[in-house]
């Protein structure tokens, strides 16, 4: 218990990361079909541990689709079919023997619109640890909840009203609550699907700060519409266009000196 609360990733990561690989998530030849529609075409990418990776690209380019493949959220769509291979620490995500529930505990997700459960703030954060059986006692659960809220930078604001409904918070607070909820199950990877698109600039800045803080402990993948945001928060950036991964590399490199014409066009505002 101590291990997980004090430093959730050090022990975990040590156990899971294959020595020498250096990458947390790897995708090879990943294709997604929605019925007849080929939504994602042969995407291969490696995502390093403890850094922020940004997915950018115009609407409908497949970046969210790919993100949802990593924790198999696409399973909930009946007509969706995924081929290829995605691994986390070398373990195939789409392996039949893998329990998708365990996978999602290892890969947290934050959604576009803040979606706290219409329950108390405490219950929002405690839900994940509860269903995974992380806490053997109420005190332990309290500790997990507090630590998670603390890490999400929300503790100070909600300390005195943990029993209030999660939906009573402001938009930015709700989104940080969702981040706290994701952190509470000690994931290794956090997926963020345009986490700031529904927020005002101040709340956005707060979330971006948070992402930067979280980077030291988690591997974060963020889908964003805002190139500035990608530039601000990420170390690496991947550009998607029409279902293909066009280019991937150091953020600085992508934004200043892209290899591909399409990336160049997008960054300069010609595709959008």
């Amino acid at each position: 218990m101590d291990a997980i609360v004090a430093n959730p990733s050090s022990a975990t990561a040590a156990a899971h990361v294959m020595p020498g690989s250096g990458f947390k998530v790897s995708a090879r030849d990943c294709n997604v079909y929605y019925g007849e529609k080929h939504a994602l075409k042969s995407v291969s990418v490696d995502i390093p541990d403890r850094s922020v990776m940004a997915f950018i690209g115009p609407s409908g380019c497949g970046k969210s689709t790919f993100l949802r493949c990593i924790n198999r959220m696409n399973d909930t769509i009946p007509i969706c079919r995924v081929t290829g291979k995605i691994t986390i620490d070398g373990q195939d995500v789409y392996d039949q023997s893998l329990d998708v529930v365990q996978l999602r505990a290892r890969v947290g997700m934050v959604f576009q619109k803040p979606n706290p459960f219409p329950k108390s703030i405490y219950d929002n954060v405690a839900y994940g640890p509860r269903i995974h059986g992380f806490a053997q006692s109420r005190a332990e659960l309290d500790q997990i909840v507090m630590t998670s809220l603390e890490k999400a930078g929300l503790l100070k604001e909600v300390k005195d009203r943990l029993t209030d409904s999660g939906t009573s918070l402001s938009g930015g607070q709700q989104q940080r609550l969702c981040i706290a909820r994701a952190i509470a199950v000690s994931p290794e990877v956090i997926l963020m699907d345009e986490p700031c698109s529904a927020l005002d600039p101040i709340a956005t800045a707060r979330i971006e700060e948070l992402i930067d803080e979280l980077r030291s402990n988690y591997s974060i993948i963020i889908v964003t519409h805002s190139m500035q945001q990608a530039a601000r928060v990420s170390q690496r950036t991947a550009f998607f266009h029409l279902g293909t991964l066009v280019e991937e590399g150091e953020t600085g490199h992508i934004f200043t000196n892209p290899n591909d014409k399409r990336t160049q066009d997008y960054i300069t505002g010609r595709i959008g």
Partner: peptide
């Protein structure tokens, strides 16, 4: 709203 279900799935709840 489906977002509630997604949120639960996102933290690793089973369907």
């Amino acid at each position: 709203p489906p977002s509630i279900k997604e949120a639960a799935l996102g933290v690793g709840a089973s369907h």
